[in-house]
Computed example of a mutant assay.
Amino acid sequence: MKHYTLKGITFALAGFILINLTAFTDVKSPVEAVITSAPVDHSIYDRLLKKYVNDKGLVNYKGFKSEEKELKKYLDMISSNPPTSKWSKNDQIAYWINAYNAYTIQLILNHYPVESIKDIGSKIKIPFVTTPWASKFFKIGDESMSLDNIEHGTLRKNYNDPRIHFALVCAARSCPRLRNEAYTGDKLDAQLDDQGSDFLNNPAKNAITPKKASLSKYFDWYKGDWKENNKSVEYWVNKYSKTKINKDTDISFLEYNWALNEQ
């Protein structure tokens, strides 16, 4: 009888341990907590954009320089919280666009004053790195990354939405305007469409008539992106331009103005 009771006690004890071990494994470690966290808060960056970027998308870099610690606080948060599969697609795209644009601002500040982002290339003392876009000057998670990695290796590769070209701003006058608010997942579609409309109807960046269209070099550089999913350059221009073009419209491309997009 004692032997039976002892076995019962042993069985009950084993069950207690098993149940509690199972419960323990459901407790998330700090690393898991980061991995499954909600999308990052872009409010710091949003405040800086509203303060130092005007309605034309021109940047007060001196103003950003005066609050560089705040920008770096935001970038540190971006760096420590890469997107996960638990985020919506729009939250992921918004994160990467904000990261590209914010790190571009930081790159300019690292070398400020500068007349053009292209001038930074000659200052980079890294073997085989000749452009600022190829310099891996920041990290996302544990991975060293460049602006090219974000644009070509992440956004263009993984998300198949040509509208990103209306949102990524490489600090040049011919770029689309830098939006003076952060991109967010819940507003992303409206923000990208607004960027497209602004870009296509700005005669300094796309001069369009029914007979002749002098388009941004973006439509030449990324012609493959515009033609994906059975679309065309004509389709994307007409989606946003108030003046429509057709197959008979003579299309050429404007010279790109690399001067700094500074106020």
Score class of each variant (00 low, 15 high):
K2W: 11
Y4W: 12
L6M: 09
K7Y: 15
G8D: 07
G8E: 08
I9K: 07
T10N: 12
A14Y: 08
G15L: 15
L18D: 10
I19Y: 13
N20K: 08
T22W: 09
A23R: 14
A23L: 14
D26I: 13
V27T: 12
A33N: 13
S37H: 07
A38P: 04
A38L: 13
D41A: 01
H42M: 05
H42Y: 01
S43G: 03
D46Y: 10
L49A: 08
K56Q: 13
V59I: 15
N60I: 00
Y61M: 00
Y61Q: 02
K65H: 11
K69N: 14
K69Q: 14
E70G: 02
L71H: 10
L75N: 05
L75T: 05
M77T: 10
I78T: 02
S79K: 08
W87Y: 09
S88G: 04
N90C: 05
Y95N: 02
Y95V: 07
Y95W: 10
A99W: 13
Y100S: 00
N101R: 01
N101T: 06
T104M: 06
I105S: 03
H111W: 12
S116G: 04
I117E: 06
K118G: 05
I126V: 15
I126C: 07
V129Q: 10
V129H: 13
P132C: 03
A134R: 11
S135T: 13
F137H: 11
F138A: 00
F138D: 01
S144H: 11
S144W: 12
S144N: 14
S146Q: 04
D148M: 00
D148E: 10
N149H: 11
I150M: 06
H152S: 11
G153R: 04
P162K: 12
P162Y: 09
R163S: 06
F166R: 05
V169G: 00
C170G: 06
C170T: 07
C170W: 02
C175V: 05
L178P: 05
G185P: 06
D186L: 13
K187S: 11
A190C: 05
Q191C: 07
D194N: 09
Q195K: 11
S197V: 06
N201S: 04
N202D: 15
N202M: 02
P203Q: 03
P203M: 02
A204V: 08
T209L: 10
K212M: 09
K212C: 07
A213M: 07
S214P: 04
L215D: 00
L215Q: 06
Y218G: 05
F219S: 03
W221M: 08
K223V: 11
D225E: 15
K231F: 02
S232R: 04
S232H: 03
E234G: 00
Y235F: 14
W236S: 07
W236V: 01
V237R: 09
N238W: 03
K239V: 05
K242R: 13
T243Y: 01
T243W: 01
K244C: 08
K247E: 13
I251P: 00
L254H: 06
E255C: 04
E255N: 14
Y256T: 08
A259K: 15
L260Q: 02
